[in-house]
């Protein structure tokens, strides 16, 4: 009888220990891009553990699946993916992992771009256009305004897989979006118009125009603008050449003019005609800035820039792409500060 009681007690203790251990075990989140991982960490904090497959200085289009990715996805509770045709290598990794929970459409899978109004949807679907993206441009991370939707989608995914943490995730997500809004538009303007209204206008590239026409308490509303939008305001309408079309959302948000791309069709090397026209155009229009992600061939970027007396702005596209870039806010800070500094250096901004 005593032996039975001891055994029963042992079972109870073991079951309790397993339950406690299980409840304290963080939710395992795997993100394709480091930006999604950084945002998930800001929302999930200590309730989650998070890893990113792509590192900050890699081109997310061309990732070669490795066994370590399979191991990462195999153990994941939640998988964060753009949900477009950027990470084309992901289905192979998910298949090999055997983790049915994180397959597309399942509870553990989160398409972070869901609900975003995508730009540059192709009118003609043809492989002759190079690496065409069927649903529209997938480089959504280049615009901070898109990260509001991304943060909400991530929050919904975390709650679905860890319902007990709902209030916790919601609180941190609200905090993240508030901080994002403040860094984008400044606190004063956010208090007047609210983040949703501002973000809606900014995503369509209409914020500067709207603010210029409106007044608040007898003063132009644009005077209330702060944050990155204010820093970038002097560059509004300025022509900038990019290496690849991965800045479309950034250009729309800050109302910059994309005056051409070095690589006209993604993934296909340029022709002499294209390069010579680009150089001619840059000279004629006095385009002084060439923007490129740091995973492209910097030699080419610098050569074109040197030929037309322009300054290359080579920046990481993702979080972790440079040592100092640890959060998404650091990343946008770096983009904005380098562009503004280069514009001043080249005389684009007097």
């Amino acid at each position: 009888m005593k032996a039975h009681r001891t055994l029963l007690l042992g079972f109870v203790v073991a079951a309790t220990a397993i339950q406690v251990w299980g409840s304290e075990k963080p939710l395992r989140v795997v993100a394709t891009l480091p930006d999604y991982a950084a945002i998930a960490k800001a929302i999930g904090c200590e309730r989650i553990s998070v890893q990113a497959i792509v590192s900050g200085e890699q081109d997310a289009h061309y990732i070669r699946p490795k066994p370590s990715f399979v191991a990462m996805v195999r153990d994941a509770d939640v998988l964060l993916d753009t949900g477009l045709d950027l990470e084309m290598w992901l289905p192979t990794v998910v298949d090999k992992s055997g983790n049915a929970k994180v397959r597309s459409g399942q509870e553990g899978y989160v398409a972070v771009a869901k609900g975003l109004d995508l730009l540059k949807k192709p009118k003609v679907l043809s492989r002759s256009e190079g690496g065409v993206h069927l649903y529209g441009n997938p480089h959504i991370t280049s615009s901070p305004v898109n990260m509001r939707t991304v943060a909400r989608n991530i929050t919904a995914g975390l709650i679905k897989n860890d319902p007990e943490g709902k209030a916790y995730y919601q609180e941190h997500a609200d905090k993240f979006i508030r901080e994002l809004d403040e860094r984008m538009f400044g606190k004063a303007l956010g208090d007047i118009l609210g983040g949703d209204t501002l973000a809606g206008l900014a995503a369509q590239g209409k914020l500067y125009g709207f603010l210029a026409k409106q007044a608040h308490e007898g003063k132009p509303l644009i005077d209330q603008l702060g944050g990155w939008m204010k820093q970038m305001l002097p560059l509004r309408g300025k022509p900038i050449v990019t290496y690849h079309k991965n800045w479309v959302y950034f250009f729309t948000l800050f109302e910059l003019e994309e005056a051409g791309t070095v690589e006209p069709k993604p993934g296909i090397p340029p022709s002499p005609h294209h390069v010579l026209s680009l150089i001619e155009n840059m000279r004629q229009r006095d385009v002084r800035i060439l923007l490129a992600a740091n995973y492209f061939d910097q030699h080419q970027v610098k050569t074109v820039a040197a030929r037309v007396n322009a300054e290359p702005v080579i920046v990481p596209l993702y979080v972790g792409g440079e040592e100092s870039v640890e959060t998404y806010f650091d990343l946008v800070d770096l983009w904005v500060s380098r562009l503004v500094a280069t514009a001043q250096k080249t005389g684009v901004l007097k």
Binding site: Y62, Y295, F296, H299, V304, G321
Partner: peptide, 22 residues
Amino acid sequence: DKMREGGASLNATLVGSMLWVS
């Protein structure tokens, strides 16, 4: 695989950058 510009560099070493000579 271990480099920042790994993909672009590998591609550049295969197809070159003859267009950009000075």
